[in-house]
Design a binder for these strands. Sequence first.
DNA 1: TAAGACGTTTACGTTAACGTAAAGCAGGTG
DNA 2: CACCTGCTTTACGTTAACGTAAACGTCTTA
Lengths: 132, 132
Amino acid sequence: MSTKPHYSISDLAQEFDITTRTIRFYEEAGLLLPERNGQTRIYTDEDRVKLKLILRGKRLGFSLAESRELIDMYDPNSDNTRQLNALLSKIQARREQLERQLEDIHLMQAELDAAEERCRDALNLTQPATDH
Amino acid sequence: MSTKPHYSISDLAQEFDITTRTIRFYEEAGLLLPERNGQTRIYTDEDRVKLKLILRGKRLGFSLAESRELIDMYDPNSDNTRQLNALLSKIQARREQLERQLEDIHLMQAELDAAEERCRDALNLTQPATDH
DNA sequence: TAAGACGTTTACGTTAACGTAAAGCAGGTG
DNA sequence: CACCTGCTTTACGTTAACGTAAACGTCTTA
């Protein structure tokens, strides 16, 4: 038997440094569907993972709708063979987007390098000789 | 003497697959400041580079305000020594953000791998023996 | 039992990043 | 000259992703 920890809404809010409103909003958007104890939401480890995926997607500039696709991929309940091939092509599309982002990041890093050098040069011209 | 090509607003719109409205909006937001021939905007190569930076930032989930900071770094007109150190720390912050995004991308790629494998497994169970 | 901490729903407000008209000027062409 | 093409400004509309406030339930702790 596996241990099944669960979390309150504020547990997760605190852990990921977001508000409870945000979490409820994600539920409204159909990205989460926690169990309930009466009115109170109860989050499982799976919900926690989904939230993590959402936030990671957000950091990469994905919309919630896009993140939902990612979560749907992660969901092991898509057993329709017909859909699986569609999923595979979506996965491929994602992969290509990530490749583009990787390239963007490398380009950006190179430009930060250049910008930093320009800055340092400008400072050196002001403070000519740093003989200790 | 360097050749100084210039572009119309629709030249750039077409090249980057955005609307002219978008480009004017970026100007409104203070990210671009093209020359004018009367009323008509004339874009230099430098403007083109800035636009490129904005769009790259966008792909990485940056806001326009953040992209403006990137452009300001790129601008060689920040000659105030006092500001340069602030710039350097901003550059550093950017760098760390990019590192985080890199990590996010790698994690995401790993999960796409896993998702793909699950898909393929599911398909193989349906189509058991692929003896040609 | 009153207060405080935590949860809930409902609903209107806000910001960013454009979209979408509407109305008009400027230059070239049949 | 009338028309078309491409540019302009002004201004209101829209969508996503929450923020914020109101009003209420529930538990526990002083």
